[in-house]
Every structure is written in structure tokens, then in C-alpha cells.
């Protein structure tokens, strides 16, 4: 009897928790579904047709956004900016974090806290000096100038996350690698980096999101349309007085797709990285 009651309680608890989780999942998915259905409508029907699936589907919006809205060009630019900057951040931040964690050198703590302090400066506060600096270096309105700025923006937090992981790495692994003839750079590459895979996944997703969604600095630094990232395409559909909602939603769907894919591919590492990060220290 007691066992039967216990089973019933478990079943009821399970049903309630699943219903609750389904509800939460739906609230997360609903904006995405709304974005997709709006992207298949016209400006006239978007305010009238309240159905989740529109009566007439206008897939042409995606084509128009890609061609007339120049999302094709912006998409390629965003891929270049995100891939280059994230890759550079991983290389530089992991080297720096490894050095801060494992090596002894004068001013180690000073420089580490300096990086941490950089995290406290709000990004908009550094925009104007960055633009002035890039102009002085003749790097304004170039892809490399923008990529360097985005690397700079992402480094502090990435170094902090990776150092936390390297701090927990057993020193016996390092000793074993050293006995096998590994140099310091070799230990970083063959031992530290593979172990830090969950942390790297977190750094990748944080920076990918940050760079993929960045627009203000791009607008300040870049002048030519063909250098602009995806976010520009979205802004163009949001006029001061009117908004082209279907095209905006089609653009948003195009913009969101790669980020969703990155998250789906890396979700295991990200969850592991975040949970390990949560218990670190």
C-alpha cells in the first residue's frame, strides 16, 4: 500500500514537473515561432491575421531579405568577424589564462587584476576612444580594425573563465608532460587546452553571441555597406517612423539560425562548462 502511494506521488510529481517544463519551453519557443510566422506574412496581413500559421505563406520574404536587404553580404561579414575574433580570443585568452594560472612572473597579479578591471568598464564608454584610436592607426573602416576591437572586447571575461579552469588542473599532469619532453607551449596545447574544452565551449558561445549581435561599434567604425555585419540589415528595416515587420522577421530568422545551431552543437559542453564554472572556487 505504502509503495503504491509512493508510486502515485512520483507519477503526480512527474506529471506536474513535466507540465511546468513544457509550459516554460513553450514560453521560450513562442517568440521564435512568432518570428517565423511573421516572416512569412505581408505588411498588410501581419496586423490582421492572428493565426499562428498564416493563410498565405510568403517565402519570398527570405529571398528579398537575402538579396535586396543584402543579408547575403552581411551574413558573410558576420561569419568572418565572428570566426576570426572568436578564434583569436580562444588562442590569446587561453595562452594568457594559462600563464596567469601556471607560470610565475613579475607583476602577474597586477596584470591579471588589470584585465579584470577592464571588465568593469562599460563598453559604450570605450567607443569614442576606440574610434579615435582606430582612425589614428588608419584601421577605421577596415575589417581587421573591427576584428581587433572585438578581440579586445572579449578578452577579459574569457581570460577570467579559462584561468578558473586552469587553476583546478592537477599539477601532476603537467609534471608528467614535462617528463615526456613537452615544452611550456606544448603543455598548454597538448594538456591544458583539451582539458579546458567545456570552458572553451562557454567562451565560444559567449563571444559568438556577443560578436554576432554587435552593431554599435560596427556602425561607429565601419563606413562601407559591404563591410557591415548582419545587425545592420535588421536596423535598416526599422525606420524612424515605420517598420517593415515581415522583412525584419525574415532577417531575424536568418540572423538567429547560426546562433541556434552553434548552441545545439555545443550544448553538452556549454552545460558542463557552466555547471563546472558554477561550482568552481
Amino acid at each position: 500500500m505504502a509503495v503504491s502511494n509512493y508510486k502515485w506521488i512520483r507519477v503526480v510529481q512527474s506529471v506536474f514537473s513535466h507540465v511546468f517544463l513544457i509550459f516554460v519551453a513553450l514560453t521560450c519557443l513562442f517568440p521564435l515561432l512568432w518570428m517565423l510566422r511573421s516572416s512569412l506574412m505581408t505588411n498588410e496581413t501581419i496586423f490582421i491575421d492572428k493565426a499562428l500559421i498564416p493563410q498565405t505563406l510568403h517565402f519570398n520574404n527570405f529571398y528579398l531579405a537575402w538579396t535586396q536587404g543584402k543579408f547575403g553580404v552581411y551574413f558573410l561579414n558576420s561569419i568572418i568577424y565572428t570566426a576570426s575574433a572568436v578564434f583569436a580570443i580562444i588562442v590569446i585568452a587561453s595562452l594568457a589564462a594559462y600563464a596567469f594560472s601556471r607560470l610565475q612572473f613579475p607583476g602577474k597579479n597586477f596584470f591579471f587584476y588589470l584585465f579584470l578591471a577592464a571588465m568593469m568598464i562599460p563598453l559604450p564608454g570605450s567607443f569614442v576612444p576606440l574610434v579615435v584610436l582606430m582612425n589614428k592607426l588608419h584601421l577605421a573602416n577596415t575589417r581587421i580594425g573591427y576584428i581587433l576591437c572585438m578581440i579586445n572586447v572579449g578578452l577579459s571575461l574569457s581570460i577570467y573563465i579559462l584561468k578558473t579552469f586552469f587553476d583546478k588542473m592537477p599539477s601532476a599532469l603537467e609534471d608528467a608532460a614535462r617528463i615526456d619532453g613537452c615544452s611550456k607551449l606544448g603543455i598548454w596545447f597538448h594538456v591544458a587546452l583539451p582539458l579546458a574544452r567545456p570552458a572553451i565551449a562557454v567562451v565560444v558561445i559567449f563571444n559568438t553571441l556577443n560578436i554576432w549581435n554587435e552593431y554599435i561599434l560596427a556602425t561607429l567604425l565601419l563606413n562601407h555597406e559591404h563591410l557591415m555585419p548582419l545587425q545592420r540589415g535588421l536596423m535598416v528595416y526599422q525606420g524612424a517612423y515605420s517598420v517593415d515587420y515581415p522583412m525584419l522577421m525574415a532577417g531575424l530568422s536568418i540572423t538567429a539560425a547560426p546562433v541556434v545551431l552553434v548552441y545545439l552543437f555545443m550544448q553538452k559542453h556549454i552545460i558542463k562548462g557552466l555547471s563546472e564554472g558554477a561550482t568552481a572556487g
Binding site: I80, S84, R143, I144
Partner: peptide, 13 residues
Amino acid sequence: VLAVFLLAGCSPL
């Protein structure tokens, strides 16, 4: 990586 940077356009327009 170097190739990506170069392709990305290192020189100002």
C-alpha cells in the same frame, strides 16, 4: 588563421 585575417582585408579601403 593568418589567411583568414588577410582575406578579411587588413589594408584600409
